[in-house]
Amino acid sequence: MESRDKQLEQFVDCFQAIGRFMKRNQWSNQGATEITKTQWLILRFLWKHDGCTIGQLAERLEVRSSSMSQMIDRLELAGTVFREQDKNDARTRIVKLTDTGRETITSMKNAQVEMLAGPFNQLTLEEQTALVEIMQKMTSSLKPQGRQRQEGK
C-alpha cells in the first residue's frame, strides 16, 4: 500500500506542476485577450456545447445560478456571448457564443495546445495515446465532493 500512496503523491506533484506551468504561461501570455479563468471555462463550455442554459453552466462550474447570471452579464457586455429565447420554452434563455467569443476561445485554445505541444511531443505516440486514455478514464470517474456527500446520505 505504501508504494501506491507514493505513486499517488508523485502523480499529484506532476499534476500540480503541469497546472502551475499552464497557469503561469497561459494567463501571462494571453496578450490582448483579457478574460479570467472562469470566463475561459464558460466560453470553452459554450464552444463545446453550442450554447446552453445558465442553469447548465452554473451546474458545470458548481456555482449558484444567480452568480452565473452575473458572469454571463459581464461576458455579454464584452461581446463574447449573447442570450436567445429557447425555441421549446419561451421562459428559458440559451447562452451562445458570438463570433468574437468564438475567435477568443479559438485563439486561446490554440495557444494552450501550442504551449503543451513540446512536452507532449516528448512522448511516443503510444505514450500519448495511453496518457490521454488514462486521463479520460480518471476524469470520467470524478465527482464533485458535495455530490459525493449528498449521494452518501
Rank of each mutant, 00 (worst) to 15 (best):
M1S: 15
M1I: 10
E2D: 13
E2M: 12
S3D: 12
R4Q: 12
D5V: 13
K6M: 09
K6I: 12
F11C: 08
F11Y: 11
F11L: 15
V12W: 11
D13F: 12
G19H: 14
R20M: 08
F21S: 03
F21G: 01
K23A: 14
K23V: 10
R24P: 02
N25R: 11
Q26K: 13
W27L: 04
S28E: 12
N29W: 03
Q30A: 03
T33H: 02
T33I: 13
I35T: 05
I35Q: 03
I35H: 01
K37D: 05
K37Q: 10
Q39D: 10
Q39E: 15
W40R: 09
W40Q: 08
I42A: 03
I42W: 00
I42N: 04
F45Q: 12
L46V: 01
K48M: 11
K48A: 09
K48H: 09
H49W: 10
D50G: 03
G51Q: 07
G51N: 04
G55M: 04
Q56D: 14
Q56E: 15
L57Q: 07
A58E: 08
R60I: 03
R60F: 14
L61T: 02
L61E: 05
E62V: 12
E62M: 08
S66M: 07
S67K: 08
S67Q: 09
M68F: 07
R74V: 02
L75C: 08
L75A: 00
E76L: 01
E76H: 07
A78N: 07
G79Y: 04
G79T: 05
V81H: 03
R83S: 08
D86A: 09
K87S: 06
K87P: 00
N88F: 08
T92A: 05
I94G: 00
V95C: 07
D99W: 02
T100R: 12
G101W: 02
G101L: 03
G101N: 06
G101I: 06
R102N: 06
R102L: 04
T106V: 05
S107L: 03
K109R: 10
A111S: 05
Q112W: 10
E114C: 02
G118S: 08
G118W: 09
P119S: 01
T124K: 06
T124P: 07
E127A: 13
Q128H: 01
T129Y: 06
T129S: 13
A130S: 13
A130L: 14
V132W: 00
E133D: 10
M135V: 13
Q136F: 10
Q136D: 11
Q136H: 10
M138E: 12
T139A: 15
T139K: 13
S140L: 08
K143F: 14
P144E: 06
Q145T: 09
R147T: 11
Q148K: 13
Q150K: 15
Q150Y: 15
G152D: 09
K153F: 13
